[in-house]
Design a protein around this nucleic acid. Structure first.
Lengths: 355, 355
DNA sequence: GGAATCGATGTGAACGTTGACACTCGGAGA
DNA sequence: TCTCCGAGTGTCAACGTTCACATCGATTCC
């Protein structure tokens, strides 16, 4: 009914406590410099009025917003969503707030999103799961704001630091595992090539099969969805069965498993299947799915740490573009062997707690 | 190496274009009021300098940040993640930016998060998937900022509007479907009771089984995870089999399916199974899972629309707490019948496009 | 032809905060 | 006693923008 009251300002608090606004500011920023008695009066006034600092005014004055912008694709795919969650938590921990911007299906074009992220005055940007559609947005941003990219392979962005999970390494570990299990022919059900992660997985696959001398084949690209996995699996079944299939992610693997089951192909006896991501539920597929788990939590934390260290404590003296040491920090993914690629694996394996 | 240059301001643009800062402002806010020739000069200068408006200064001056705060649980569960994505897209569409804050596993306590969301000066708050842990944060916020809650059942928050998917209705449609299919005894594998959505589903279940006179049982609560679903399923199998099981969400249903399969219980022949959410992949479970699809996209859009309409065009004249008309806007969930509860359903059903 | 009008632009003030500096007061050292 | 110091507090200016009003030349109208 009635309009909400104006937010109280430092002046309001100061009046109530009988001090100047500067003293209020000091109580908030440097409490031990003000006499305990005064401090308590001010704190009481803050409490009574429900005062909170106006972030816009602070940002204006200090030129630092304490906001981290997160640029992501518009989807809610497992990897990006999980990473986002971890980034948010880590940023929060470090006293930063997270601003969300999307490029892609839902979200607007890269250009516009980039401009908006800039306007918002984020101190730094973290890019999650970049694909090619994001590059223009990033180029615009990089001119004035430090960027940390959470996926490798976006080489066009100058000045961007990377914190990544080594996709190729994950793919190699899958192929090695399959070879060890006796598979001689392996098919890679590849992901959308516009995604840098998909390229990394494919590259690791190619490298490993070459090195191990396996019979290899790569299908047409899927779009990460179970449906695409199923579709490609149908096509695959028209030819001779390979010993193993490595799907670009768990969802595509699920589609594949579904089709194999429907056609009476036994997994892993006739075909071994491995996915990528270790999504929630992979351990409970039929059969329980071997996959590559990515440390999304540590990834998010590392990205935030990297970004903040580049930001430096004082705005002037920092040299954000030159983040500490090497340009890329790679985290290792972890192969999780379950029933879908190993008869000796327990029928059910634990999965990590919900996150 | 060198510090990034200071962001250009309107004054910089004005100098370059040989006009006053006010003219620059007008070019941005009210272009047709400035002479075309001048306008073009200013626009050129903007382009050359890569100028973008400083949002902090705007927010300070106008007292409107054009930021929507989103409060969510710290997880990346399917429903919340999908809704978040939709909210971001809708907010972006409406010219708002999305600020993310979490309460829960990762995120900090409700109190602190609430204060931070307030400080950030969001024009309004959207709460996704509230559970009890959020209530304190919300109470603090509601004093000065309009709130739209995206889940029903958070009655403690005065002044909060709700935009929801009717969980009870979804649960009822499941029970009705099962009854029609001839099931006489139904077990509900319930979700965590601290979540308002879980309560809604359970309430709908109870109501429907009462009304239809079915044999009903409710298990101990799960935690949304497949693991919890599997654990509860193990316990369930120690007793006589019911005709059907209604799981609180698809993940728990997946755990259940896994255990049933391992024990050689045939679905749906011996036990029908229905989940809730229609997560990506549900159509490709073994068997393909009947479930209740929630219109998360429309939900996000509706929440943003509701919030913005309450915000009003001008800050003074708006009466945000009193959002238009009824307090709750319920969207209808949609029952999707697949193989797990119906022998006549096709083995594979389409699912919606990735989002 | 002079006043009223309008279109185009400039000037001043303010939003709420912080950093630099100035002031006041009591006590310590000369 | 006078100066110096520091602890505690206050005043001023500025961040970049927008709003309200002022200005100025060129019309238009009677």
């Amino acid at each position: 009914m009635t309009s909400l009251p104006r937010r109280p300002s430092m002046t309001d608090v100061a009046d109530r406590a009988g001090v100047s606004y500067q003293t209020v500011s000091r109580v908030l920023n440097d409490p031990h410099r003000v006499k305990p008695a005064t401090r308590e009066r001010v704190q009481a006034a803050i409490e009574e009025l429900g005062f909170t600092r106006n972030r816009a005014a602070r940002a204006l004055r200090t030129t630092r917003s304490r906001i981290i912008g997160v640029l992501t694709d518009g989807s809610s795919l497992y990897g990006p969503a999980t990473t986002l969650s971890a980034v948010e938590a880590a940023a929060h921990e470090a006293g930063y707030t997270t601003l969300l911007a999307s490029v892609g299906p839902h979200g607007a074009s890269g250009e516009r999103t980039g401009r908006e992220l800039l306007e918002s005055g984020a101190d730094g940007i973290i890019v999650i799961a970049p694909h090619e559609g994001m590059v223009p947005a990033l180029e615009a941003i990089a001119r004035t704001t430090p960027i940390v990219s959470v996926t490798a392979g976006a080489p066009a962005i100058p000045g961007a630091t990377m914190v990544t999970v080594d996709q190729a390494r994950g793919a190699r570990s899958v192929v090695e595992h399959l070879a060890e299990a006796g598979c001689r022919s392996v098919v890679h059900l590849q992901g959308p090539p516009s995604w840098f992660d998909a390229r990394g997985r494919r590259a690791g696959f190619v490298e490993a099969v070459d090195q191990l001398g396996l019979d290899a084949e790569i299908t047409e690209p899927g779009d990460w969805s179970p449906g695409s996995g199923a579709r490609i699996a149908e096509a695959l079944l028209r030819g001779p069965l390979p010993d193993a299939v490595f799907a670009a992610n768990d969802h595509m693997a699920l589609g594949l498993l579904h089709v194999l089951h429907a056609r009476g192909v036994r997994v892993p006896e006739q075909v071994a299947v491995v996915g990528f991501d270790d999504i929630s539920g992979a351990a409970y597929f039929t059969p329980s799915l071997s996959t590559v788990r990515q440390p999304f939590d540590r990834l998010g934390q590392a990205a935030v740490a990297r970004l903040i260290s580049g930001l430096g404590p004082a705005p002037e003296e920092a040299a954000p573009a030159a983040a500490p040491s090497g340009l890329a920090a790679d985290l290792a993914p972890e192969l999780i062997v379950r029933r879908s690629s190993s008869l000796t694996a327990p029928a059910t394996t634990d999965e990590p707690p919900v996150s």
